[in-house]
Simulated assay, not measured.
Amino acid sequence: MTIALREARDAFETVAADLSAFLDARTDEDLLARSRCRGWVVADVLAHLHLGLSEMITGFAYRVDAPPDTDFLTYWSGYPEPDPDAAVGQIRFARLLASAYGRPTGLLDHFRPTLEAVRRFVAQADDGCVRFQGHVLPLGDFVATWVVEIVVHHLDVLVELPGPTPDLTLAVRTLDGLRGEGDRPADWDDVTYVLAGSGRIPGPKGYPLLG
């Protein structure tokens, strides 16, 4: 199963524009608000996501002719079991990184141009494969994984702050592919599904689905 580059590109532009609008409305006080991620305020989540987007840029530099060994579903299902000790280090690292700025909004001066650079890379990309984190992915699938990453972290920062829900279409499609279409509690809306699928709230056996 794979995602066409055009579909992934359109989805990425939608969620990136949503995130950009969210960032433009933020104050120092906003970035100190609680998030859904244990141990992190909003600024910490954004510091973590900024590192991820920077890493995404390096993916575009590693175009390869090798056949793909991973798609937008197996990328998530192939994650190793989380290491609690490593998780504590990652939590602390993001907090220390975000706190290094004189004001919380100083982080946004780095985040915004990185996000805009990634939007350009995605908009100008053509078909092919990239090597990323030891995998070879078709470019559409590579972009699709980052659509899901952005959506989940966008939901993370909406606990205490106002803002519209990001477009969940591709995140829901990913979860359906991992779990099976229709295999979710009937009373769950898409937000609940994505939050449970990403481990933000408890779910039934087999959840979370995203590494």
Score class of each variant (00 low, 15 high):
Tyr62Arg: 15
Thr192Asp: 10
Val191Asn: 07
Asp18Trp: 10
Asp126Lys: 14
Arg103Cys: 10
Gly197Ala: 02
Pro104Met: 09
Ala171Asn: 01
Ala144Phe: 06
Gly197Cys: 02
Tyr62Ala: 15
Leu195Ala: 04
Ala47Cys: 04
Gly206Val: 01
Asp24Arg: 12
Tyr101Ala: 09
Ala47Asp: 01
Asp10Ile: 11
Ala86Trp: 12
Ala86Glu: 13
Gln90His: 11
Val136Lys: 06
Val157Glu: 06
Ala100Pro: 07
Gly211Asn: 05
Leu23Asn: 01
Gln124Cys: 14
Asp24Thr: 13
Val159Ile: 11
Thr105Ala: 15
Leu108Arg: 03
Arg6Phe: 14
Tyr62Met: 13
Leu139Pro: 11
Trp40Leu: 03
Ala16Cys: 05
Gly206Gln: 03
Val172Pro: 04
Tyr207Cys: 07
Pro166Arg: 03
Asp190Thr: 09
Leu178Val: 03
Ala125Trp: 02
Arg9Leu: 08
His154Tyr: 02
Phe12Lys: 01
Leu195Cys: 02
Ala186Ser: 13
Pro80Gly: 11
Ser20Met: 13
Val88Gly: 09
Ala87Gln: 13
Thr174Trp: 03
His153Thr: 02
Phe22Ile: 10
Ala98Arg: 00
Ala94Ser: 12
Arg112Ile: 10
Ala86Ser: 12
Arg9Glu: 07
Ile3Arg: 11
Val45Arg: 04
Leu209Tyr: 00
Asp65Tyr: 11
Ala125Phe: 06
Arg36Trp: 13
Leu210Ala: 03
Pro68Ile: 04
Asp18Gly: 15
His154Val: 04
Val88Met: 09
Val130His: 02
Ala196Asp: 00
Asp167Tyr: 02
Pro82Ala: 00
Gln133His: 15
Pro80Met: 03
Tyr193Cys: 11
Thr2His: 15
Pro164Glu: 06
Ala144Trp: 05
Ala25Lys: 10
Tyr193Ser: 11
Ile150Phe: 05
Ala4Ser: 14
Phe111Glu: 04
Ser99Gly: 14
Gly180Pro: 09
Val118Asp: 04
Asp176Ile: 05
Arg36Gln: 10
Pro84Asp: 00
Val15Lys: 06
Thr114Ala: 12
Glu160Phe: 08
Asp71His: 01
Ile201Met: 08
Asp167Trp: 02
His110Val: 14
Glu149Ala: 00
Asp109His: 13
Arg36Cys: 07
Gln133Phe: 15
Cys129Asn: 14
Asp71Ser: 01
Leu73Met: 10
Thr70Gln: 08
Thr74Lys: 05
Ser198Ile: 02
Leu137Gly: 04
Trp146Leu: 13
Gly211Arg: 02
Asp69Cys: 10
Gly163Ile: 00
Thr70His: 08
Val41Ala: 15
Val45Thr: 05
Pro67Ser: 13
Ala98Met: 06
Asp141Asn: 07
Asp71Asn: 08
His110Glu: 15
Asp141Gly: 06
Trp188Ala: 01
Ala117Asn: 15
Asp176Ser: 13
Ser77Gly: 10
Ala47Pro: 07
Arg9Ile: 03
Val147Pro: 04
Asp126Asn: 13
Arg112Cys: 08
Ile150Asp: 01
Gly182Cys: 05
Lys205Val: 14
Tyr62Ile: 11
Arg179Trp: 05
Trp146His: 15
Glu181Leu: 14
Asp127Phe: 11
His135Ile: 14
Asp190Gln: 10
Tyr101Asp: 08
